[in-house]
Nucleic acid binder design. Structure first.
Lengths: 225, 225
DNA sequence: GCATATTCAGAATGACCATTCTAAAACCAG
DNA sequence: CTGGTTTTAGAATGGTCATTCTGAATATGC
């Protein structure tokens, strides 16, 4: 009952953070040994090898992400457009905080070129995410929250691709604030009310803006049991 | 006058295509020797090393890209919104054709984590692209072609990030047609006339659609002297 | 046609890395 | 304690890769 977190889970989390910030090829087993606190022998007997550990990390990450999307987007007690805004805010907040994009969308890609197992995980993850977003946009459209000319599937792909792109650019191109503005502009444009100039975020008021919103999602909301 | 193309340029182009499709780490010097037709000695004396060759490739690519953007976007004889649509159509067409995103935006990132010289090139390239797009969106807005609530800078960042994201997703997630639809939906939403359902592209009519448009850009338009 | 310089192909080098092996240390049941 | 098992830290292995070296082949100048 009080078993906080399994040994294996701790290893996965430490490995995830290392892979996430340095990439797969730039992370050596030696690095993982140091980061996880376990020695080579333990790592190899727990997972089998570096690639298998990476796959375990991806599975862990994908499960977490999918739960966030599904839980938020299937909450029928509030406007779908809000739920959509919240999940993508969460993505942008997280990439702002880490300074790097989605682990599956922006990091795993390089490995996917060599490892079909990685490519498959990316594909199925985004397929699930896209389905959930499409469905939410359909409901939003029914309620008149989204421009009726936008096909839900196109809108979902747009939002997902945009977040992927922001993740790619946050490393070298855009500041986190700029990333937020781009995404806000997209959502506003989709909803047809690109109207008020207040969609922009500046660095001074940004933290209040986001911290005070009631429905904001943090990683902890979902990861802690 | 008739010097078609320098020896060095041919090497750069062959190397570019190899790096572009397989990434930096997954391309060995041996691969480059085979792909370029020149032997190790020649490659090393021409460029200095693998990284330097990659930098030369990036410079070549960035110059080409920048020229396309600047030439197209600064053509004041036609509506800026058309120019914007054309450059981004070009990007999406190219990634559809190659099955991989922008070399600087989607491939060089992994190297940038280790090599500051690569990171710098990415940064300056997109900074230039963003400036050009922002300016074009300003002009488009003055002419009423773009929703006046969208800040040009936000809009430009949105479009650039979206193309980056489509590039990332085209490898594992979306089909080229889907990528085109996402981007069209974004442009339509920005221009405020997300109106007509005909922004969608299907695989049957896609090629005619794009080949018959008069202002379409192909890589050759710019690369051949 | 010959001497000299350039270019070639592939072998040698040295570094790095994932994985396996090994011998010592820690643990534990009796 | 003690005999045996598990875990550890780090050394050995085998492979890959970028880079340099080398001696043969080719071109060049006279």
């Amino acid at each position: 009952m009080m078993n906080r977190i399994s040994d294996q889970e701790m290893v996965i989390i430490a490995a995830r953070d290392m892979f996430w910030s340095r990439g797969y090829d730039n992370t050596s087993v030696e690095d993982l040994v140091k980061a996880t606190g376990h020695n080579r022998y333990a790592l190899y007997s727990m997972f089998g090898g570096k690639l298998e550990l990476f796959l375990a990390v991806l599975d862990y990450y994908q499960k977490e992400r999918r739960d966030i999307f599904l839980q938020t987007l299937s909450d029928h007690t509030r406007p779908p457009i809000e739920a959509i805004r919240d999940v993508f805010d969460f993505c942008v907040d997280q990439m702002a905080e880490r300074g790097v994009g989605c682990l599956l969308g922006n990091i795993a890609g390089e490995v996917a070129r060599k490892e079909p197992l990685v490519a498959r995980r990316i594909k199925t993850h985004f397929s699930e995410i896209l389905d959930a977003c499409t469905y939410a946009l359909e409901r939003a459209q029914e309620r008149g929250e989204i421009n009726e000319a936008v096909k839900p599937k196109d809108g979902a792909q747009l939002l997902v691709a945009l977040v992927l792109g922001l993740g790619a650019s946050v490393e070298c191109v855009q500041s986190p604030d700029d990333a937020r503005n781009s995404y806000r502009a997209a959502l506003a444009a989709l909803s047809g009310d690109a109207l008020s100039g207040k969609t922009s975020v500046t660095s001074q008021n940004q933290s209040q803006n986001f911290d005070s919103r009631p429905s904001v999602i943090t990683e902890e909301t979902y990861t802690k049991k």
